[in-house]
């Protein structure tokens, strides 16, 4: 593994910032040896998490602060990985109420959390100290863990 082990980004609750965040994550994960499909998973999960903060935490209002830290993991058991912590200062909701919706319905909305949980190894929401919500997500560079293969049931 090479490159900076911690990536701090200054992010605010503005959807116009999302493309640049995605570019930063792509570049940083590539530096750390992630494959294309896993990079796409990580980028998607982060985009969904930030979109949720903008839409729900801050009710779509631009200009509010979001703390973003990505960190390379070197776990003796799980191997190389990434941990992403996203903290806002907006509305608090009970963490156990943050869950995906029934996927048998044809309706927009409510898909972000399902996507995050599908593409990451773990995703844990909690109340941040002093207000707002915190999400910590992890993913590891294990073989055969690409989302696409998992979703369509390939071994």
């Amino acid at each position: 593994m090479s490159g900076r082990d911690v990536l701090n980004l200054n992010v605010t609750s503005d959807a116009a910032e999302l493309p640049n965040v995605r570019d930063e994550i792509r570049a940083w994960t590539r530096e750390h040896g992630w494959g294309d499909n896993q990079i796409a998973d990580i980028v998607l999960a982060i985009d969904e998490a930030l979109s949720n903060v903008i839409r729900h935490g801050y009710n779509g209002e631009a200009g509010h602060k979001i703390d973003f830290v990505a960190r390379a993991l070197h776990d003796p058991i799980e191997g190389e990985g990434i941990e992403v912590a996203i903290r806002d200062y907006g509305k608090q909701v009970p963490p156990d109420r943050i869950c995906g919706r029934d996927l048998n319905d044809l309706r927009p909305g409510g898909l972000g959390v399902h996507i995050i949980r599908s593409v990451m190894a773990s995703a844990k929401y909690s109340h941040a100290p002093g207000g707002g919500m915190q999400l910590v997500m992890r993913k590891y560079q294990q073989p055969n863990t690409d989302t696409y293969d998992r979703q369509i049931g390939k071994p």
Partner: peptide
């Protein structure tokens, strides 16, 4: 990747 998203969400 776009197709994958439709599959993940079962849409």
């Amino acid at each position: 990747r776009v197709r994958s998203l439709f599959e993940i969400t079962r849409l």
